[in-house]
């Protein structure tokens, strides 16, 4: 830290106190720029100038402004620069209170040493950095949530109210984000499934289910129903118990599957027909031929014609048997006659 350039804005109207602070700072920091403001007006001018500060040391009593209102005003104007309050024993209550408003630290003027001032500044800057990083990763997660191509939402585990929805959900379901946030998850379920929904919710409450997956019907704003695969999990959101839900529209997938199943059924039916229906007349023809041959072994012409008839019928028989065998390769096992 000693080698990093830091820029300290000291807001102090008492020249003696200022000199002391300046000394302390110079003692501890090598690359230091100090700006000094002695009243509220010049602080405003300094903050509006756009010049950056690493940290602000703020006296609670300025000739033209003081107290909590001063703190809040500087905080607002300085947009995230860490602020350390300098105060006497008389204002210690305000100083403590300001900590809850996001002030980094406070120092009692009579107790300031080079060491504790240095520490307070370094801590304040480091803590700020850390908070910035956290803010950044929060933004990354927010983007992940918003730009995931599949509909995602959060709902309150108790009220079932939507707490947040992503863009894909808005596109898929047709409700705007505002509309979503005024709805509960009951409103995207068909009316005849509401009982099942309550049952499911009670069940997952009782069993404390962390993760859940299943197939459901959802209703879009347009009234159209879609089949969705749902994955959900527990999480906390702004202090509320919430569930995050990922919804995957599989309506088309199911339709395709159904078409394929129907085609399979037809194929099996054709195979069955080949085996049972088409072969029946062939077997009769062959049977009749057997019989005729037994009776008419003496006539040359007739036996020639019969043998030709047999050749053709056998040929057809072979073809049908081949087709039946081929069909069995596409799984005939489970086909029932009816």
């Amino acid at each position: 830290m000693e080698n990093t350039k830091i820029n300290v804005l000291v807001v102090e109207d008492n020249p003696g106190d200022y000199l002391l602070i300046e000394d302390h700072l110079n003692e501890k920091f090598n690359h230091l720029v100090i700006d000094h403001c002695a009243d509220y007006q010049s602080v405003l001018t300094r903050l509006d100038s756009g010049k950056d500060s690493s940290v602000i040391l703020l006296d609670l009593n300025l000739p033209d402004f003081d107290g909590m209102a001063l703190v809040e005003s500087v905080q607002k104007k300085s947009e995230g620069v860490p602020i350390i309050i300098l105060t006497g024993y008389s204002d210690i209550k305000i100083a403590k209170e300001s900590l809850s408003k996001g002030i980094s630290d406070f120092l009692i003027k009579d107790d300031i040493t080079a060491e504790n001032l240095y520490k307070a500044i370094v801590y304040a800057i480091e803590r700020k950095k850390f908070l910035c990083e956290q803010q950044k990763s929060k933004v990354v997660y927010q983007h992940l949530f918003n730009f995931t191509p599949q509909p995602l939402w959060l709902y309150d585990a108790e009220t079932l109210q939507f707490l947040d929805v992503n863009e894909a959900a808005v596109r898929k379901y047709g409700y705007s984000k505002e509309e979503f946030l005024s709805m509960t998850i009951r409103e995207i379920r068909p009316k005849n499934e509401l009982k099942a929904l309550e049952k499911q919710l009670t069940k997952s409450e009782e069993e404390r289910q962390q993760d859940f997956a299943g197939l459901y019907t959802h209703t879009l704003k347009s009234g159209e129903n879609i089949q969705v695969e749902i994955h959900s999990g527990d999480m906390e959101y702004n202090g509320r118990r919430a569930r995050i839900v990922l919804s995957n529209d599989i309506t088309d997938k199911l339709t395709h599957l159904k078409t394929i199943e129907e085609q399979n059924k037809k194929l099996k039916k054709i195979a069955w027909t080949q085996s049972h229906i088409v072969r029946a007349p062939i077997s009769r023809i062959l049977g009749i031929l057997n019989l005729i041959e037994m009776i008419t072994e003496d006539s040359d012409d007739l036996s020639f014609l019969l043998s030709q008839l047999r050749v053709s019928t056998n040929e057809m028989d072979t073809i049908v048997r081949d087709i039946v065998n081929e069909s069995q390769l596409i799984n005939l096992e489970n086909y029932e006659n009816d």
């Binding site: 085996s275 062939i282 077997s283 069995q328 086909y335």
Partner: peptide, 9 residues
């Protein structure tokens, strides 16, 4: 006896 040549039968 069947005209079926179905392996299932």
């Amino acid at each position: 006896v069947s005209s079926s040549t179905d392996s299932v039968d």
